[in-house]
């Protein structure tokens, strides 16, 4: 069973909560799919067992010994990536989308495509099982594809090692890496916070989840920072038939746990927040059984 933890808005506590869920499970595969900002390895310090190169996309480059500056590529490019800079045809690496059309139509055969291969995926063992995480190279695109690769690897290991639960720590937002994270999972836990921004982002995140066949759950983290908005969020969930899981209190000890490289259950086992998380995970695991 795959459980994905996402949030819409960043910084609501997604990673701390997925780390807690991982610690609270007996044996688990943890997939860090927040490939722009993979952080769980900091808490779990996994062994380094396998490393795989991830090819993100392609970029066009011009061989100026062949280019005669005709500018045909400029007129074909729909991403405004090719222009005359100081009257010389120039490709902007940032804007290039990797569609290869310029390379195909160039009459001088002067444009070739290079693979972006600086991103990596790692696999290792940590104290509660196996962990897979991606590290997107700076400025890399197509992170959804890397998310798919991380999830595929997690599933393969789960099967080989006969481990049932996969916890996925997802990225913020609602774009391609998020869509790749939630496609085909059984449960999505949305972690939100009681602010107008949190509520706004939650609504958009619920809408993207509703396009998939999965069970959506909501946790309000740091709920006591604004109980009024927490009530609003809970009401919103109720009226939209979203399973409301729990409210977690704001506790500065959670930050201390992170600084000590420990998860919530490890650092503060007797705190209220840990009991609430344990109960929440139980509810999800037993749902529909």
């Amino acid at each position: 069973m795959e459980i994905a933890v996402i949030s819409g808005k960043g910084g609501t506590g997604k990673s701390s909560i997925s780390a807690a869920f991982a610690t609270l499970s007996d044996k688990v595969i943890l997939a860090d799919c927040d490939v722009d900002a993979a952080n769980l390895y900091i808490l779990f310090n996994p062994t380094h067992e396998e490393e795989q190169i991830y090819i993100g996309g392609q970029k066009a480059i011009i061989d100026y010994s062949k280019c005669y500056n005709c500018g045909l590529c400029v007129s074909y490019c729909r991403f405004d990536a090719i222009s005359f800079v100081n009257s010389k045809v120039t490709i902007s690496e940032v804007s290039c989308d990797g569609c290869k059309l310029c390379s195909r139509i160039c009459p001088a055969n002067a444009i070739s495509m290079v693979n972006s291969d600086k991103s990596l995926m790692y696999t290792g063992t940590f104290r509660n099982g196996k962990m897979v995480y991606g590290r997107l190279a700076p400025g890399e695109e197509n992170s959804g594809k890397l998310v798919n690769m991380v999830r595929d690897k997690a599933k393969t290991i789960a099967e080989a090692e006969n481990i049932e639960t996969i916890i996925i720590d997802g990225p913020p937002g609602i774009g391609c890496p998020v869509i790749s994270t939630i496609t085909g999972v059984e449960h999505v836990v949305i972690v939100t916070e009681p602010s107008m921004s949190g509520l706004n982002d939650l609504q958009r995140t619920i809408e993207i989840c509703s396009k998939f066949n999965l069970t959506t759950w909501v946790i309000i983290n740091k709920s006591d920072l604004n109980p009024e908005i927490s009530n609003k969020i809970q009401e919103f969930c109720l009226s939209h038939n979203i399973n409301f899981l729990c409210r977690l209190p704001f506790d500065p000890e959670v930050v201390k746990a992170m600084i000590n490289k420990k998860t919530i259950p490890e650092y503060m086992p007797d705190y209220e927040i840990n009991k609430l998380l344990k109960n929440a995970l139980n509810i999800i695991m037993n749902y529909g059984r």
């Binding site: 722009d36 900002a37 940032v94 997107l136 695109e141 992170s143 774009g175």
Partner: peptide, 11 residues
């Protein structure tokens, strides 16, 4: 800016 370091941030 959007969070992260991939294409939305770069753009």
């Amino acid at each position: 800016s959007p969070p992260g370091t991939s294409c939305p941030f770069i753009q």
